[in-house]
């Protein structure tokens, strides 16, 4: 074995731990949290309670599946919160006037996908950065839902056939969780088993190289945003059904919760790496923490602090590990490979 080969061997072993943490870290944390809670938190082991936890995980979870795909491709979508509100509102309007649940599902999901399509077109064809496009869209869509609702009165509708989707169960398993798992499986399949998924990873890891390798970058990005819309629409429908109502002010800050869940699940914000499994685990972790704190009678305010702390802690681990490795000195990240680029990446956003 040559020196170089030995080095590669050692290197990959070293990276192995990183990869393990990246892939299974959060899932392990969830398991530990469940085991501890099972034995030490009163009432946690009550099956109804545990079923409630997994139900709660689904509402952010479905949208997080779509966001995982977006973040792996190196973009993200800040408009999902507003999209959620608008599409849920329209869905409830439809179901309360036509009493057709199927029509409501279609409207909710299609509206969200349409917004995704507009995002995708603005980003690829006009060339505005994803951050600004989706930030702008979040204002526009939120404004639209206030305009359509003429000031923000929520619509209510509580026919059983409709609210079953958010509140019902099948063989005791909550319907939203079943849908979440179906979404997650679909997301996993798209990412791992289709050419489209491969394109998502390629664009996320190196967009220019992906283009050179023949990846249809623009088309892929448009599809990514449509898919984000699709999964956000599913979340919107479930939340509307769960609450029996939807107004334009629904779930403020939803977009940030979704992004937080995805990132906590080990998906790298810069793109190129990530997994649906991590996202599922992170959504479960959030729901579990909320539930445990509830059972311990911590007030809702403490819960918010705890949630933020968890996110920060989980994401600091890599940085702390690096620091320990380098004996407390700052390092510039571009050193490991000899750079041979003679041009700036710079320019305007």
């Amino acid at each position: 074995m040559t020196v170089a080969e030995k080095q590669i061997k050692k290197f990959s072993v070293k990276l192995g731990w990183d990869l393990l943490w990246e892939r299974y870290g959060i899932a392990t944390v969830v398991l530990i949290a469940w085991v501890i809670a099972f034995f030490f938190v009163p009432n946690f082991r009550n099956p109804d309670n545990m079923l409630n936890v997994i139900r709660q995980s689904a509402f952010v979870g479905c949208a997080a599946v779509g966001m995982t795909i977006a973040i792996i491709s190196g973009t993200f979508d800040l408009s999902v919160g507003s999209t959620l509100a608008l599409s849920a509102y329209l869905g409830l309007m439809v179901v309360s006037t036509t009493e057709s649940v199927l029509l409501a599902i279609l409207v909710t999901v299609l509206v969200a996908m349409l917004i995704g399509l507009i995002n995708g077109l603005l980003i690829t064809k006009v060339g505005i950065s994803a951050f600004i496009t989706t930030l702008g869209m979040s204002f526009i869509v939120r404004g639209l839902s206030y305009i359509i609702s003429k000031g923000g009165e929520p619509v209510r509708y509580n026919a059983k056939a409709f609210i079953w989707w958010g509140n019902g169960s099948f063989l005791r398993i909550p319907i939203p969780f079943i849908i979440f798992i179906i979404c997650a499986l679909a997301g996993w399949f798209i990412l791992k088993k289709t050419p489209f998924g491969r394109y998502v990873f390629s664009i996320g890891t190196n967009e220019k190289a992906a283009k050179v390798a023949g990846v249809p970058v623009q088309r892929t990005i448009i599809f990514i945003f449509i898919i984000v819309g699709l999964f956000t629409g599913i979340s919107a429908f479930l939340i509307g059904s769960r609450l029996y109502s939807a107004g334009p002010g629904l779930e403020p800050g939803f977009e940030l919760s979704v992004i937080a869940a995805v990132v906590l699940g080990g998906t790298r914000l810069a793109g190129g790496r990530g997994s649906i499994l991590g996202t599922i685990a992170a959504c479960l972790l959030y729901a579990t923490m909320g539930n445990i704190l509830n059972l311990l009678h911590a007030d809702a305010f403490v819960q918010r602090v705890a949630v933020g702390m968890i996110l920060l802690l989980a994401l600091s681990i890599e940085g702390i590990r690096q620091r320990i490795f380098e004996h407390s000195s700052r390092r510039i990240t571009t050193l490991e490979i000899e750079p041979n680029s003679n041009e700036y990446q710079g320019g305007q956003a």
Binding site: P195, R198, Y199, F201, S202, G204, T205, N206, K208, A209, A210, V212, A213, G214, V215, G272, R273, I337, P339, N340, S341
Partner: peptide, 25 residues
């Protein structure tokens, strides 16, 4: 490409995925 790092490598992907990207369809 001449600039392997910038225009060639899909750095986070495996050897297999780097080879098959052009023929995946």
């Amino acid at each position: 490409p001449n600039d392997r790092k910038k225009d060639g490598l899909l750095p986070d992907l495996s050897v297999k995925h780097n080879i098959s990207i052009g023929i995946i369809e």
